[in-house]
Design a binder for these strands. Structure first.
Lengths: 251, 251
DNA sequence: CCGACTTTGTGCACACGTTCACAAGCGCTA
DNA sequence: TAGCGCTTGTGAACGTGTGCACAAAGTCGG
């Protein structure tokens, strides 16, 4: 176990009978998993699911880490956050890992998703979102365009954004996906928040302001492109640099 | 942020007096900017562009950081990576910052982009990609479906994936966007790489294997959803925990 | 039953990124 | 020109995440 702050170290033998402290530490553990590790666990899960379908029953950290594109030590540390489910000298049982990762990621429950903004991207998401992580049924779609209201997209009828509070409550939406034009995003976000949605995936290129208890993740195409652009530029500069400094091309 | 390959280690602190190291440090600096800072610079740039359009000429780190949703010290440090363009006691000139960030991000050149896989998502990207970061013209589209070849999407004719090498070379594509089904992604990736594309934005939920000199960023919807799911689960557990431990609801 | 071999789980050290806190620097006013 | 108040730029402390290397713990063959 990694040394945390002085506080939650005594989890070992659970000394003092403090109220609410006798929990199996599984829940405490969940809080301690680094976000980066969570992201990787999701990747491992996908790889493992693929292996399970190919009837692979056991895999070593070395093999799995190669398939997931990470260092094997990191993989083992990531897995250690969720418990000790490997067998030394052997490896991990694929099925066990799948189950445990799904448990930690909360994939044993279904998470109802809504998509707001049924443009090009929203369309794609409505058709796409339910399928890859099989625990995310899209259960509501919203737009402002009157021509779209009531139209079925991917099997779901589009509702008006004004109905977000009612529809989200009815269908117990827990994750909201924003795919609106930038100016509309904050307004939509506010409505989702007041509808009780606690997690938001934002595709609109704006910085959303939300209360502390709401989790926002953003997917920003422009930013991704610009990061790549930065690398292109860096490479070009390096090449120019190497050139100037009289580097000889081998061969 | 999110998971990247464990590779990007060679970004380390510029070591000692190696030959060709005496450059004006602008280029050296570029190498030293942390990836996380680059991502934020792109966000600042967008905010700043918005401000410029509203004829704001000057802004303090405090204001800008609030608009970008970060801490002001972090913002100043991020900006310090690209140089000292602020005036103490006053703030930053919006236009200067815009220019400098664009320079660092390599946005002064146009980066030709191709999209592979013209399904729902590819469609959305073809229409979307050029516009938000104004320096990214989509100049080629590819698919395997014969019915799509030659069809114009967002003003560009779709070519066959087999023509990737030729078309990418002709149109000087520097960034490849993969929006194919998972099984096709690695093959497409290989073709892009052999066509000389050095940066890839991958929307397919697979771990791509590429040579070291190729930069890959991935956007993985399923992973994002699962991270949110994790947070939903964590919250639920916390609530349950608080409940069990006999917490009294105030009021 | 033992010893050799394999692979996990993790303590430790290091690197990276974030935050704090303050000196340095600039403009404004008198 | 000197003094004051404001904001930048950054050294240094801190916390988090990564990677190494090895002990612990299991399997397997003899």
């Amino acid at each position: 176990m990694g040394a945390r702050r002085g506080e939650d170290v005594e989890v070992v033998t659970a000394p003092g009978r403090l109220p609410g402290n006798d929990e199996p530490a599984v829940r405490e553990r969940a809080r301690a998993i680094p976000e980066a590790a969570v992201a990787r666990l999701a990747v491992y899960l996908r790889v493992l699911s693929g292996l399970a379908e190919q009837d692979v029953t056991t895999i070593s950290s070395e093999e799995l880490s190669a398939a997931a594109g990470v260092n094997s030590a990191k993989l083992r540390k990531d897995l250690s956050y969720i418990g000790s489910y490997g067998t030394r000298g052997v490896g991990y049982e694929v099925e066990v890992l799948v189950d445990q990762i799904e448990r930690i990621l909360g994939l044993t429950r279904k998470h109802s998703v809504c998509v707001v903004g049924i443009g090009n991207l929203g369309h794609a998401l409505a058709n796409y979102a339910g399928f890859p992580g099989r625990g995310f049924p899209v259960s509501a779609l919203f737009d402002v365009d009157d021509d779209l209201i009531g139209v079925p997209v991917g099997g779901i009828l589009v509702s008006h954004v004004d109905d977000i509070p009612r529809v989200c409550a009815e269908r117990e939406v827990s994750i909201g996906v924003i795919a609106t034009p930038p100016p509309a995003a904050q307004g939509v976000c506010d409505r989702l928040v007041s509808a009780g949605v606690q997690c938001i995936l934002n595709f609109a290129p704006v910085v959303l302001q939300v209360p502390d208890h709401v989790e926002v993740r953003k997917v920003d195409l422009a930013v991704e492109m610009q990061i790549l652009s930065f690398h292109v530029a860096r490479r070009a500069d390096e090449a120019a640099n190497a050139d100037e400094s009289g580097m000889v091309v081998p061969g």
